[in-house]
Design a protein around this nucleic acid. Structure first.
Length: 423
RNA sequence: GUGAGCAUAGCUCAACUGGUCAGAGCACUGGACUGUGGCUCCAGGGGUUGGGGGUUCAAGUCCCCUUGUUCACCCCA
């Protein structure tokens, strides 16, 4: 019988990697709680329109990367390619603007995009994201970036760069867009094939084409910061001031234009040099018009998403040896001892101690071998002798030291473990 | 969607320009050591060389197709 495999771009995650994931998730949860974020659980499927409206009809994500199908009622349904659209839908649907502003949410879950997999890119991938609704203040931008800074520092991810930019608002972005368009239109003939398409679709993308000739002819291109309106300029300036005041280091990168249509003003990425072409591990920005576009009130918002696989990849080396360790291994040598061991194990588990009960038909040698592989601290040996004397034999695997202990007093076992929490 | 590379044991890799029964390390199982693990030694199980077709006296090796995978482009976390 042939084996089944996962779909392309889809992976199983289990030990030891899963412990890295737990570390990221738990640390994020702790840090987010400090900033007042509550978890939100959003569905994996939505009406397709939720995504086409928010992400943008002509973006690659919507045009060619969504898992879209009709349900039995003929409705067009899509697997979520990102989280923000659903959170905004939820915010509008449930009138969450009636709660005190600002409202802060975080989510964690799988996203789906039909792309060719490569390093750091998968078809089913996981994001931890956060969104704040109801604040126009640059202070919120700075606070959010500072929160990410704290998260990265707790995870000991030092070798990353925060890059920020402003892409203006509804009012001023069009003027920049047309300035860019005009600038490159004059040189259209020299552009690469991709850029000729970008000229109409997404002129901002012309700024970071990797083609060498394109890179050369863009010398002297219009700078976005010269075009954004005074409101956007002031916002951007204040964000930078606050980041400096908080000691959050960053670099300005006018190329961060993001691929989703809904962003306004502040956009940012946290990047690394260790992941090949997929260097962004966190990305986000402000989206002040999206709630209104979704039929809600004019509520500004800002958010980000963390790429779990990418972050886990960065942490892999430092967490290589991380495993769940159980404290005791009971090694029963006969059936009566097995009965006794199993019931002792259950009593210890009630006390919150993780223990393993070996199977009674193994030899002591095999018990010890098994215990060694399981990385336990102590082996508790119970055989005929021990039962007769009412004393179990304990053996510490790190140094082979042995002793005896009352066979059926739980406190004896708990005190044995105290002071020996590591192997 | 485009391009390039790679698919041999559970894992990491061998096998001269096609040519003895496709090997090793690690892992796994058992033994040496019958109530004492790790170290050492010994033994064992496991592969129709991703799948299909072709060339040839002979294919893991060459050709075609297919699937998977890796990396990159587009784009994106």
């Amino acid at each position: 019988m042939s084996k089944y495999n996962t779909l392309k771009g889809v992976a199983d995650i289990y030990t030891p990697d899963i412990h890295i994931w737990h570390t990221i998730e738990n640390t994020a949860k702790e840090v987010f709680a400090l900033y007042g974020f509550n978890e939100i659980r959003i569905p994996i499927i939505e009406y397709t329109e939720v995504f086409t409206r928010s992400i943008g009809q002509s973006t690659d994500i919507v045009e060619k990367e969504m898992y879209t199908f009709n349900d039995r009622g003929g409705r067009s349904i899509s697997l979520r390619p990102e989280g923000t659209a659903s959170v905004v839908r939820c915010y509008v649907q449930n009138n969450l603007h009636t709660l005190p502003s600002p409202q802060k949410f975080y989510y964690n879950g799988a996203m789906f995009r039909y792309e060719r997999p490569q390093k750091g890119r998968f078809r089913q991938f996981y994001q931890i994201g956060a969104e704040v609704f109801g604040s126009v203040s640059p202070m919120m931008d700075a606070e959010m970036l500072s929160m990410l800074n704290e998260l990265l520092s707790r995870l000991k991810l030092n070798d990353t760069t925060l890059e920020i930019n402003s892409i203006g608002c509804k009012q001023c972005r069009p003027s920049f867009r047309s300035a860019i368009q005009a600038f490159f239109l004059a040189k259209e003939e020299a552009l690469c094939a991709d850029c000729k398409v970008r000229l109409n679709n997404n002129p901002l993308r012309l700024l970071d084409c990797k083609n060498e000739t394109c890179a050369n002819i863009r010398n002297g291109h219009p700078n976005i910061l010269d075009y954004i309106c005074s409101g956007c300029k002031g916002h951007h300036k204040r964000v930078k001031e606050l980041l400096n005041a908080l000691g959050v280091s960053f670099v300005e990168n006018p190329m961060i234009v993001r691929g989703l249509d809904y962003y306004t003003k502040t956009t940012f990425e946290v990047t690394t040099q260790h992941l090949g072409a997929q260097k962004a591990i966190i990305a986000g920005g402000r989206y002040d018009n999206l709630v209104e576009e979704f039929g809600g009130p004019a509520v500004p918002a800002i958010g980000f998403a963390i790429g779990m696989e990418r972050m886990a990849e960065l942490l892999r080396e430092s967490y290589a040896g991380c495993q769940v360790s159980q404290k005791l291994y009971f090694a029963p040598l006969c059936e009566k001892a097995e009965t006794m061991s199993l019931s002792l194990c259950e009593k210890l588990r009630v006390k919150g101690i993780s223990v393993v009960c070996g199977e009674g038909d193994l030899s002591l040698k095999r018990h010890l071998k098994k215990a060694d592989k399981l990385n336990v601290i102590f082996v508790i040996i119970i055989g005929e002798d021990e039962i007769v004397k009412g004393k179990a034999t304990w053996r510490r695997l790190s140094d082979g030291q042995q002793g005896v202990i009352d066979i059926d007093t739980v406190e004896g076992y708990t005190s044995l473990i105290q002071g020996n929490t590591t192997r």
